[in-house]
């Protein structure tokens, strides 16, 4: 599985959504991505790449695309 596939899988499993919903997805624009869903998403991404995301980055992870930029900081290439 590629890193992008892992990243997508984390979103789909944590938020319970399908792949076609990922592009352009932003925090709080669907019921599943509320504050609790956000923590589940963080946990899923951390598990997928064995990283620990800083608090400031957790707050900044406001969209599917933004998340890609942020996890690059943790030496994860998508």
């Amino acid at each position: 599985m590629t890193n992008l596939e892992k990243y997508n899988k984390a979103f789909m499993e944590a938020l319970g959504i399908t792949e076609d919903k990922l592009a352009g997805l932003e925090y709080n624009t669907i019921p599943e991505w509320d504050s609790v869903g956000h923590m589940q998403l963080i946990a899923a991404i951390e598990d997928a790449f064995d990283i620990m995301i800083d608090t400031d980055d957790i707050i900044d992870l406001s969209s599917y695309e933004k998340g890609k930029e942020l996890i690059a900081k943790y030496e994860v290439e998508l």
């Binding site: 923590m39 589940q40 963080i42 946990a43 951390e46 608090t55």
Partner: peptide, 13 residues
């Protein structure tokens, strides 16, 4: 507050 925020991700599992 911060400590809870940090540990919550483990508790959610």
């Amino acid at each position: 507050y911060l400590f809870t925020q940090l540990l919550l991700r483990a508790m959610m599992k």
